[in-house]
Write a protein that binds this DNA or RNA. Structure first.
Lengths: 230, 230
DNA sequence: GCGTGTCACGTACGCTGTACGTACGTCAAT
DNA sequence: ATTGACGTACGTACAGCGTACGTGACACGC
């Protein structure tokens, strides 16, 4: 018996296996061993199907939230959970980010993240902004990581692949070794840490101001497991 | 006389006017008043044309770099220049970010940004990481801002459009007012400032360490090009 | 005149999404 | 038991897609 879920699942599998370009209603129908038009009994259009794919992937984000952990660590965990899904469904992730879906699919992550940020001491407005900034960073990072037509590929997204003229682009030329290689894990953690620390600073400043004192600029986190001062 | 530039320009205009879905070789040809296959004398394929569109938009980033300004301000300026282009060609921007292009089109921005970061005191590896993180944030932000199928729309990207159950999502429910509205300018500047400040902190820490103090846990690699991957 | 090139163009093929009509199963009311 | 309504699967058909291929018009050095 055909149903919406089987169709969506087949679509996700097909996307991961052969890329988003390979997706067509005929192809999916063939994959399921049914006629093309049968799909339309469960899905109103191809666009809606892709939206459903996006929702499906998004809803797979795992939540191993640890309420006992420091909020900074919980932020890291949530960001990594998001990233893990993206790596598990890299090509579908491109579908997710390239369509804005107005559903409630990704609402649980948002709820958790906002709760964490509130707990950190941010007021509503700040929490929302922090979240948006965080999502922007994570999405941008994932786009760099998985936004790659073949499938794996360590290639560059922002630099040249061939040689560049050292006279025209001295700095790029000098830093070629760094530009040509990219350890995605490291890069992601680097930015993540920078962001978390920036947030911690903000939270501390907030707490200080609220406590009435003159706000020493740092000191957030403390006792977190992430240390990493440098 | 038909040429590659006229084709790309027509494509950009068409995308902005009617959306990326409206783009077809036949449509572009009609727009230019030529036969469909004539396009293929100047562009090898539709995919290549879209890459060219991406390059074209990217190359339009204006540079009003002010070497006398503090590096933090120059970072802000560069980020805003990027964003301005994205707002000028919102729908084409979606095309830009959804294909990874391995050309040298966006090389000038990269050169400038890296130079600025080097000037701020970062070594090569850090500079590249900072840049990547920054690009991730900017791209992610733009995706939120312009990644909207209609054309303008202030709608949400990460929250519900209808009502949510306060019992299931208490925090989301409470923060609905903040989630439903989004001043893109403010949000962008907020994240930008947070990032710039985080970078400044890092730069200051670096300067301190270099001045002879206790050298944080990292420190290796001075100015060298050698890999020494972690 | 004569190759040789470049460029615009038309035709044709296999693909796409999907509107529409049809056929068959199940179930409720008669 | 008969009927009718309904949901589901399917086939056909159409407009549009990207593009391989062939054709013809024109400009060139010989």
């Amino acid at each position: 018996m055909l149903n919406r879920n089987r169709i969506v699942t087949a679509a996700v599998e097909l996307i991961e296996r052969e890329g988003a370009d390979a997706v067509s209603m005929r192809r999916i129908a063939a994959e399921l061993g049914v006629g093309v038009m049968s799909l339309y009994n469960h899905v109103p259009s191809k666009a809606a199907l892709l939206d459903a794919v996006a929702e499906d992937v998004l809803s797979r984000i795992g939540f191993t939230d640890d309420p006992s952990a420091h909020w900074t660590e919980r932020v890291r965990i949530q960001a990594r959970a998001f990233r893990r899904i993206a790596h598990h469904y890299p090509r579908s992730t491109m579908v997710v980010v390239s369509r804005q879906l107005s559903s409630t699919a990704g609402l649980l992550p948002v709820e958790r993240a906002l709760a964490t940020l509130r707990e950190a001491g941010f007021d509503g407005r700040e929490a929302v902004r922090m979240l948006r900034m965080f999502i922007a960073y994570v999405v941008g990072s994932l786009l760099r990581e998985v936004g790659v037509t073949p499938t794996f590929a360590p290639v560059r997204a922002d630099a040249s692949i061939a040689e560049v003229d050292p006279a025209l682009f001295p700095v790029v030329s000098e830093l070629r070794p760094h530009l040509d290689s990219c350890d995605h894990d490291e890069e992601f953690e680097f930015g993540l840490e920078l962001l978390v620390q920036a947030m911690a600073v903000r939270a501390a400043a907030r707490a200080d101001a609220q406590a009435g004192r003159g706000a020493g600029e740092r000191g957030g986190e403390r006792a977190g497991r992430g240390g990493a001062r440098q």
